[in-house]
């Protein structure tokens, strides 16, 4: 079967905006849509993707073991998720420095993995130094994650400038942790405000939800639980990665009064 062979870097500039959570969830959502997905943790020395996916006890080899030929092939280092059969993780080394991974070798590795999978999603470390250069250089596409804070937006803007200079022309934006009630009271930047500054295509919006903390601590991506409100937003993002013409799931779009009432009494179907 012919694979899509797409490589996407998830980046932000600022730390703590939810890159790893988003990588885990869109990866799981894409795998749920029957695509073969590999998540690559590029945060050498500060790896977390294994925790979010609940795979921390199964790491034997990491990406530097593959690059330095300590295992037979990259396939030996991949960890298969037990809940979603077509989701895999390539972990980062925890005892090394980011600079220990050569830019060209990492790109060669991503290019090799890409041939056998539909999606290779790279969880990029915060900052714009070696780790960012390594991840962005290896991917063909980019997803920039921001929260509605001025500091996060400014850092995202800087990252977009760097991605543009590296000719990553299909960069999309995910706005994470939107607080509906605060936007309504104009206490938080609106989606329009963010898009005016960043001026790139919006891939999706993820509203703020306490359940994300629970799911991260449990090592279980949100998308595994279809009853949770966040499920539809991550699922929508995964669908839009495959087909950008699909409408965006907007948490601010509340529909008409009947739909609102139906939603209140629990009649509205969840996707």
């Amino acid at each position: 079967m012919e694979r899509l062979k797409r490589s996407i870097v998830v980046t932000s500039g600022k730390g703590g905006v939810g890159k790893t959570t988003i990588t885990a969830n869109i990866g799981a959502a894409l795998a749920n849509l029957n695509y073969q997905v590999v998540l690559v943790d590029a945060d050498v020395g500060l790896r977390n993707l294994d925790l979010v996916l609940g795979l921390e006890n199964r790491i034997v080899f990491d990406l530097l073991d593959v690059i330095e030929n300590r295992c037979r092939s990259y396939k030996q280092a991949l960890i298969k998720d037990k809940r979603i059969s077509n989701l895999f993780l390539l972990p980062a080394p925890q005892t090394k420095q980011k600079e220990d991974v050569p830019l060209d070798k990492f790109k060669e590795l991503i290019d090799e993995i890409k041939q056998d999978f539909d999606f290779v999603i790279i969880d990029c470390p915060a900052g714009i130094e070696h780790g960012f250069k390594m991840s962005a250089n290896a991917a063909n596409e980019a997803i920039v994650v921001t929260t509605p804070d001025l500091s996060s937006i400014r850092d995202a803007d800087r990252v977009i400038a760097n991605l543009e200079s590296m000719e990553k022309n299909s960069t999309k934006l995910i706005i994470n942790r939107m607080k509906k009630h605060m936007v309504k009271k104009s206490q938080m930047l609106s989606i329009e405000d963010i898009l005016e500054t960043l001026n790139i295509e919006l891939l999706g919006i993820v509203p703020d939800d306490e359940y994300i903390t629970i799911s991260t601590n449990n090592g279980e991506p949100v998308v595994l639980n279809k009853t949770k409100p966040l499920y539809k937003y991550f699922n929508n993002i995964a669908q839009r990665i495959v087909d950008f013409s699909i409408a965006i799931e907007n948490p601010f779009n509340e529909g008409n009064i009947f739909q609102k009432f139906a939603s209140l009494v629990g009649l509205r179907k969840t996707k």
């Binding site: 830019l103 714009i128 250069k133 250089n137 400038a161 760097n162 200079s165 590296m166 000719e167």
Partner: peptide, 9 residues
């Protein structure tokens, strides 16, 4: 791409 990024920075 890397040289371009350095140049812009």
């Amino acid at each position: 791409p890397i040289t371009k990024m350095i140049s812009i920075n």
